[in-house]
Each structure stands twice: as C-alpha cells, then as structure tokens.
C-alpha cells in the first residue's frame, strides 16, 4: 500500500502521502460500490455458468453411476460409436445448411425491404418478423402438423401441382431437410432485421458517389454495401452458427431425433443420452463436444466486435 501511495503521488511528493491515501480511499470506495453493484452478475456467471462448465468437465470423466472416474472413457466410447459420428455429421449439415440459407434469404429480403418506399417498410417488416417472435417450440408444433404423414397440408398443396406426396419426416434425407427448413423459416427474419439495420447505416452519399463514379447496381452492392456490412454479416453468421449448432427445440418437437437417430444433433443426443437414458456423464461428454466449435466461433465474433468498435471510433 505504501508503495502504491508513492507511485500515485509521483512528482508532487511534497503533497505528502497522507493526502494520496485519502484520495485513494475515495477511489477505492467508488470501486467497492461498483464491485458490489456487479456482484449479483458475478455470482450468476460464476455460480451458474463457470462452475457448471467446470462441473461438466469433471462429470464427463465419470462412469454411468458416477461412482468411478474413467478419465476420457466417455469420449472414447462416443468416438467409437457410429451413432455419434452421425450426430456430428448431422449437426454440421444442419448448422451449415441452415445458416447459409438463412443468411441468403435474410440478405435478399433485407435488400428488397430497403428498396421499397420507406413508408411501407414498417408494415412489411412487422409481418416478416413474426416467425422469429413465436416461441420456436410452439411454431414447430404447427410445422409438425403440416408435415403429418396422412394430413400434411403441404402435400395437399403439392398435389394441386401434381407433385407426389413427400414423406417429410419419414425419410432420413427428407427429415433432415425438414428440420433445416423449419429452422430457416424461424431464423431468416433475424438475419433480415440485422442486415436491414446494417443497410440503413450505410450513408446514401456513398451510393451516390459510387453511381457518379459509374458503378452499376451490382457494383454498388459489391464495392459499397458488402464491404460496409462485412463486419455485421460475419458477426450475425457466426452468432447464428452457434445458436443453430446448439439448437434443440426444433429437432425435439419435429423428429425427436428419428428416424433411427438420423436427425439427432448434439443437443438432442445429449438430452437423449444424459437425461432420458440417465447416463449423465456421457450426456455431459456429448455436450462438451460442442465446446471447441463454439469457442472458435465466439473468438471470431469477439474479434469482429472489437474491430467494429475500433472503426466506429
């Protein structure tokens, strides 16, 4: 503490260390209050995020009855099982497929919205965001009913155009497609809204300057819009990759992993193994497989946000 006092007082040593200490006390009092205000947050993050994360790691090294430590046994068993490899593959197909589709559709719609007169935008935006507003577990119920093998209202529409009925949830590839379809339906509005916000933040003068420089519409998009939005696009995509990769609701309601565990993703499989079959350690191990992937995405998001902050300064 004494060392601190001389450090802070620095040049004006004449002022005496007594003064420096009272000032430090003020500063310290303020940071104590600040710390107390943040304490509930720290407790929450510490107790319900950091601690469970550590606990999950420990849990994943136990045997089924949680009586003995089997090291990486759970991970080995998982990596040896075909089902788990299927889960890995399905998770990747699901996340990548859905995110690409959402990003493209969202981008397209944001553009279309941006181009219509400002007066009507609110109305359209309001309607287009509805899928995002309904809790996904509930709207997926609606989709499930629309995919119903004998009463599918979608198949009824397809029949009008003489397309044969589709086994939406019965066939593995169709089931995979359906799961992605529902996720795209649910998530595209989010992309649209994010992109629209980004589009609106590009000043009109830039387009005018580009047009005067002779840029066509496409070139304007390529050389003005995309570079200006690059950061927000990547943040949104990465964020959505995390959320989609870890999705549970849609798979649980729509297919519950079936047929034959072929639509199982990490989350639903972890649930299946951990909670339903009662093998908590192995379920924890399944969840933990998501961790490295999510960590990489999170790292890039953080980088993107920092970069964005710097640009804005």
């Amino acid at each position: 503490m004494a060392a601190d006092g001389t450090l802070v007082a620095g040049a004006p040593a004449a002022a005496g260390s007594g003064r420096a200490n009272t000032m430090q006390r003020f500063a310290r009092r303020r940071s104590t209050i600040a710390f107390l205000m943040a304490l509930p947050l720290i407790a929450l993050i510490g107790g319900l995020v950091v601690y469970p994360a550590g606990y999950a790691m420990w849990l994943s090294t136990l045997n089924r009855r949680m009586t003995a430590n089997i090291g990486l046994g759970n991970f080995e068993i998982l990596l040896d099982s075909d089902t788990f490899w299927m889960v890995i593959m399905q998770s990747c197909i699901f996340a990548v497929g859905a995110v690409i589709a959402k990003a493209l559709i969202g981008f397209w719609l944001a553009h279309m919205l941006h181009h219509i007169p400002a007066k009507g935008q609110r109305k359209w935006r309001g309607m287009l965001l509805i899928p995002w507003v309904i809790p996904p577990a509930l709207s997926t119920l609606g989709w499930w009913w629309m995919f119903d093998p004998s009463y599918s209202s979608i198949n009824w529409l397809l029949n009008i155009f003489a397309v044969p009925a589709v086994p939406w949830l019965g066939e593995p590839w169709w089931a995979r497609f359906s799961v992605i379809l529902v996720n795209v339906w649910y998530g595209s509005p989010f992309f649209m809204i994010m992109y629209l916000a980004a589009l609106k933040s590009v000043p009109d003068q830039l387009y005018e300057a580009a047009a005067i420089d002779g840029a066509t519409g496409w070139q304007g998009l390529r050389y003005v819009t995309l570079p200006m939005m690059q950061n927000i696009i990547s943040i949104t995509v990465l964020f959505s990759l995390i959320v989609t990769f870890a999705n549970y609701d849609i798979v649980r309601v729509l297919t519950n992993g079936g047929p034959r565990d072929l639509t199982q993703v990490f989350a639903s499989y972890a649930f299946q193994v951990g909670i339903l079959s009662g093998n908590l350690p192995r379920g924890a191990a399944v969840s933990l497989f998501m961790f490295p992937v999510l960590a990489v995405f999170a790292y890039f998001i953080l980088r993107g946000i920092n970069r964005r902050n710097k640009e804005q300064m």
Partner: peptide, 30 residues
C-alpha cells in the same frame, strides 16, 4: 464506475451470452 477487472468482466458477460443453453443443461440438472 469501473473497478479492477471490470473490463474483463464486460468481455466475460458477452462470452456468457454466447454460451447456448444446451451446453450446460446436464451439469445444471445435477
């Protein structure tokens, strides 16, 4: 107000936001 470690905590808050619910539901169940 800022205090020692507040910058790290702010980053931590954001990272926590990125943790999906499906990552920790098993330990939380316990």
């Amino acid at each position: 107000m800022k205090f020692w470690g507040s910058q790290a905590l702010a980053t931590g808050v954001f990272l926590t936001y990125l943790v999906p619910d499906t990552l920790l539901f098993i330990p939380l169940y316990q």
